[in-house]
């Protein structure tokens, strides 16, 4: 079926012939695998061991951005959530809410990106659902994905497990997704080539955990960015952080954009960058492994966990002073006058 020029209509969501056509032409074409179900629920082999399960809703405007689209994002988000628990992503379900009038070819691009991203980390899409909402009831397309993963033997990660003297790493430069979306919305007339970091990180983390299973904390720095995640972990583990401000990797153009708007990259979202907290004697090895893996070549040690300053994130500045990273909180607004 040629999709060009066609749009999603309310009839596509009515459950009849047109719904079947949509599923056939778009979803089955790309999600096809032996486990993908046409029935009411997927029936799956039971994995041996502990499973991790998570769900996440994705709303992003615009739906297509430099470095990805909402489809890729919806797979990365759930894959990375499982990854943070040391769980190999096995199965995903996805639920679409599509605005009436959404172009079919765009929908197919979204679905293609989901297929590719899922394939990269070997996770199977096993069930899906489609609803069509009237014009104006949703902004283009919302996707919710739910994932099941198998927790690696001997791995136990949690935001409550950071210990003083542990080392804090990020798996790449920070703030790129948030900055990219800010630019795409073009509210401030700024142009820069900033690509979203949106990426599935299971392969890289699997490589790390296979050799160093005793990583204490892994968390994806999505909404709120690295700064928010660190404050969360500080509270959950009852520890403090001491970061070397100069060691936090930020791409030049992200620095330029945030400089213009008076924003802090520490609070911009990442979609393919994790915070990892590891025992001090393993840090070098973890860093070495990450730097050989796709999407995490730019990994860096940014600081350490401290017993002092509980609940706080301290920054060591370029001039050798210590200051607090401001606590996360408000809507990000540019600071100008």
């Amino acid at each position: 079926m040629n999709l060009e020029g066609k749009t999603v209509t309310l009839a596509h969501g009515a459950g009849g012939k047109q719904t079947a056509e949509l599923i056939e032409a778009v979803f089955k074409k790309h999600f096809s695998n032996p486990l993908f179900t046409a029935d009411d629920a997927a029936v799956l082999p039971r994995p041996e061991g502990k499973i991790a399960m998570t769900t996440d809703g994705f709303i992003v405007s615009p739906q297509f951005f430099n470095g990805g689209n909402i489809g890729k994002l919806s797979i990365c988000g759930t894959v990375n959530d499982l990854t943070c628990m040391g769980a190999k992503p096995l199965y995903l379900t996805c639920s679409f809410v599509i605005e009436e009038g959404f172009p079919m070819d765009k929908l197919e691009k979204v679905v293609c990106a989901m297929e590719e991203t899922a394939a990269e980390v070997g996770v199977k899409i096993v069930a899906g659902d489609t609803k069509v909402a009237g014009k104006g009831q949703v902004d283009g397309l919302f996707i919710t994905t739910t994932g099941v993963g198998l927790v690696m033997e001997g791995v136990h990660t949690s935001g409550a497990l950071a210990e003083p003297t542990d080392v804090v790493l990020v798996t790449g430069d920070i703030g790129r997704h948030g900055c990219c979306i800010l630019l795409e919305r073009d509210d401030y007339g700024i142009e820069a080539d900033v690509k979203s970091d949106c990426a599935p990180l299971w392969n890289a983390v699997h490589a790390v955990l296979s050799e160093v299973p005793d990583v204490h904390v892994i968390r994806d720095a999505t909404r709120g960015g690295v700064g928010t995640v660190l404050y969360e972990i500080a509270a959950e583990s009852g520890v403090g952080f001491s970061l070397n401000a100069d060691a936090v990797p930020v791409e030049e153009q992200v620095k330029g954009v945030t400089g213009m708007l008076g924003l802090d990259p520490m609070y911009l979202a990442c979609e393919g960058t994790l915070v990892m907290i590891v025992p001090r004697d393993k840090a070098d090895r973890v860093l070495e492994i990450l730097r050989t893996q796709p999407h995490t070549e730019g990994a860096a040690v940014i600081g350490e966990v401290t017993a002092e300053e509980k609940g706080r994130v301290v920054l060591e500045t370029r001039i050798g002073t210590r200051t607090y990273l401001p606590q996360p909180g408000n809507e990000l607004l540019p600071r100008i006058c």
Partner: peptide, 9 residues
């Protein structure tokens, strides 16, 4: 103008 690759009129 260009600041670290970010450009604006």
């Amino acid at each position: 103008v260009d600041a670290s690759g970010a450009r604006r009129e």
